[in-house]
């Protein structure tokens, strides 16, 4: 009983207290000190804020046409100019953010969910491994775009086909990521300890494997988020994404393509929006990766 008061105890005397130093919180604190993560976070929050406030900061009607003001260059009345139907591009870009963020978020969440389940099952139930991973390989062999064309052909061009197509394209990535970390974690002594105590597979997966896979999965997710926004834009640009007249960054750019020379602003502003949001999310992803990478820990 002699040594107990040193090391941990010496610096924090006092009554029993729930430790606030959970690894999650420590990571969060380190994240907040990470410069590029902060920059990315602020940018993304700004975009989210604009998308949320859309009805109040725009004219509220992204699809309202007005022939009189076709092709107006950026001005005080129309900060981003207008398009070939005379629609206010500021309004369309801001409303487009809602579509892009929604798609990015949903795709990231869904592929994390399904990819996570598949990855953990493959890693834990070794007999399922090769079957599951071959299915993932097959999915990965299809380019996301082909997949999307297929899905929209079946379901018709609508938002949900885009989401389904992109989710099925990113599930394999998440599954592989989770499988790789789960394979490492299943060999850890604490998993062995749980098994020795007679813990069930479900319990081990839920309490030991999944929580320790979350960090690398989170990093992957930020990239999936960014890719999904880009992919949605690409699909819409090709005319198989968000169906017009819904405003999405991709289909605004697609429309602007025909007028690239005389009305450059139609392509420029949604294009910028795509780059900025992808950049912000990637910055956050870099920060996450730096913070969650165990190699950064310094030993005395």
């Amino acid at each position: 009983m002699t040594d107990a008061t040193h090391g941990v105890g010496a610096a924090t005397p006092g009554p029993a207290r729930v430790s606030t130093n959970s690894p999650m919180r420590l990571a969060l604190r380190r994240l907040m000190r990470h410069r590029s993560f902060r920059v990315g976070l602020v940018m993304l929050l700004l975009i989210v804020l604009l998308a949320w406030a859309a009805p109040w900061i725009t004219n509220g009607t992204p699809n309202a046409t007005s022939v009189r003001v076709r092709f107006t260059p950026p001005s005080l009345d129309y900060p981003f100019g207008t398009d070939n139907f005379g629609r206010d591009l500021w309004t369309r870009v801001v409303y487009g953010a809602r579509v892009s963020l929604w798609i990015g978020f949903t795709v990231a969440l869904l592929s994390a969910f399904f990819g996570g389940i598949i990855g953990v099952c493959a890693a834990w139930f070794r007999r399922l491994d090769s079957l599951l991973m071959r299915i993932m390989d097959a999915l990965m062999a299809f380019p996301a775009i082909l997949l999307a064309i297929g899905v929209s052909a079946v379901l018709g061009p609508q938002l949900s086909s885009v989401i389904i197509a992109l989710t099925s394209a990113y599930i394999p990535r998440c599954a592989r990521m989770v499988r790789a970390s789960a394979l490492v974690i299943r060999e850890q002594d604490y998993v062995e300890a749980a098994r020795i105590s007679g813990a069930s597979s479900l319990r081990i997966i839920l309490r030991h494997i999944l929580p320790n896979c979350l960090a690398p999965l989170l990093v992957t997710l930020t990239f999936v988020f960014a890719y999904a926004i880009l992919a949605e834009a690409t699909l819409s640009f090709l005319g198989i994404g968000t169906p017009p007249p819904h405003a999405s960054w991709g289909n605004i750019v697609a429309q602007g393509r025909d007028f690239a020379v005389e009305a450059w602003w139609i392509m420029l502003f949604p294009g910028l929006a795509i780059s900025i949001s992808a950049l912000s999310i990637n910055l956050m992803g870099d920060g996450l990766r730096d913070v969650l990478d165990p190699r950064l820990k310094i030993e005395g």
Partner: peptide, 10 residues
């Protein structure tokens, strides 16, 4: 030896 080695920050 009772106790343990102090961390560099402590």
């Amino acid at each position: 030896i009772a106790g343990s080695i102090p961390e560099p920050t402590r």
